[in-house]
Design a protein around this nucleic acid. Structure first.
Lengths: 230, 230
DNA sequence: GTCAACATTTTTATCGAGAAAACCCCCTTT
DNA sequence: AAAGGGGGTTTTCTCGATAAAAATGTTGAC
């Protein structure tokens, strides 16, 4: 049932049942197959995933650590709601952290880091066509995420990277929920290219400004979509 | 066994077993009763806490979401290590978030917020004597935490507050591990007073500067303690 | 028609046991 | 001496069952 969208990442070599449950649920939530506010009854999810109760609980617990799921003591779990207010809070925080991470990466990044960005960009651009005919595949989402990750990969701060990832995922959920169908003509590939070029030529201010604009532009479109839905 | 230090917060009205386990473990880790790198064997913790395996696992899972515990797939849980590198990473990030939150609070805080700060400060200052004769009680730790919380309580950003809390806890662990015994003469009460005054008179720059100095000063002392230990 | 008390059903939280993986020690081989 | 391979032990992970709590439905009084 939640396997409607493009698919779930391949399970690692010897991943645990809990971990698979976690990933499936995460994918389902990020992909919008599990709508916000959906009640996640243990019994139901359990059957859906073909696992035991503990595995489900543990997966849900992990997700609530990332804010994708919320838990209410003794009354279960549900998919985190989405609101305009949260979207802006999240976006603002994310701009802050992403640019901070990018600055650090630009300062200390080496050749390998640069090469990683170029490679990730190339892999993403191979799928640019999809932007004209949504919905985007799981593959595109993966590569898009990997590109943004590559930009900041040289950042040495573990805490910054940890929080960045959480917010990135959150943003992804908003984007996919609101924009899964329509193709917005705004030259996303060009934006990515611009960010990459500024980054690799180590123009921190320019790179951050473009990245910020990139994030805000998306948020604005998402916000409109949310506003018009109600 | 982990109940060596000052105590565990009173359990809420009808808290779950898992939640109690979580709080006990959290207190034990923050208080240093569970040393960094300690292996947390389910069987052992289970017996220690008098609960079942699932409750322990869930508690540990939650703690690893906050970074107080680390999990390795199929090889269990252990108390997160502490390192100088992590201390500085954490501190830098924390200064960033705390000052950002404080600025927001100063901008939008109302009378209730101000009153909360004054009250929290007062409650803390009643226990100032303890600074001269460590170790600090659980009560002091509680009130100290509450004071810092009160400063930023008016901040509207949920994400910021969430991350702030995580980093605050982390810092607490470092501080208590390193400084549990010695009384450092540095006028902590005066620092708190200064921060409060600047905050309430809405001098954002001054307040943030003092808060930053307060955090960094502690970090430096902790760093020295860590460095000299090895 | 509204509300409260009680009975029934659904759902969560928790436990203990068992399968599977990792660990450890000792022995053999090169 | 180092590397590799069993075999037994420990520990994690996962399940299904059960107790406890919440939600829901029903009845009866006012």
């Amino acid at each position: 049932m939640f396997a409607k969208s493009a698919g779930t990442p391949p399970p690692g070599p010897q991943s645990t049942v809990t971990d698979q449950a976690y990933r499936k649920l995460r994918t389902a939530i990020l992909g919008g197959d599990l709508a916000p506010d959906t009640k996640l009854r243990i019994e139901h999810v359990k059957r859906e995933l073909g696992t035991g109760a503990s595995a489900v609980r543990e997966a849900l617990l992990r997700l609530s650590g990332e804010g994708l799921v919320q838990m209410q003591e003794r009354r279960g779990f549900f998919v985190s709601p989405i609101t305009l207010e949260d979207l802006w809070d999240l976006t603002e925080m994310r701009v802050d952290l992403e640019t901070k991470a990018l600055r650090m990466a630009i300062e200390v990044g080496d050749d390998t880091w640069e090469a990683g960005i170029v490679a990730a960009f190339h892999r993403l651009s191979l799928l640019d066509d999809q932007l004209k005919s949504p919905p985007l595949t799981f593959e595109w989402e993966e590569r898009h995420s990997a590109f943004h990750q590559a930009l900041v990969a040289a950042c040495r701060s573990n805490w910054l990277m940890r929080f960045r990832r959480i917010l990135f995922d959150q943003s992804e959920r908003y984007r996919r929920l609101s924009l899964s169908q329509q193709s917005v003509e705004r030259g996303v590939p060009a934006e990515h290219l611009g960010i990459m070029n500024a980054t690799i030529s180590r123009e921190a201010d320019a790179a951050c400004a473009q990245l910020k604009a990139h994030i805000l532009r998306t948020a604005e479109i998402v916000a409109e979509a949310i506003a018009s839905e109600r």
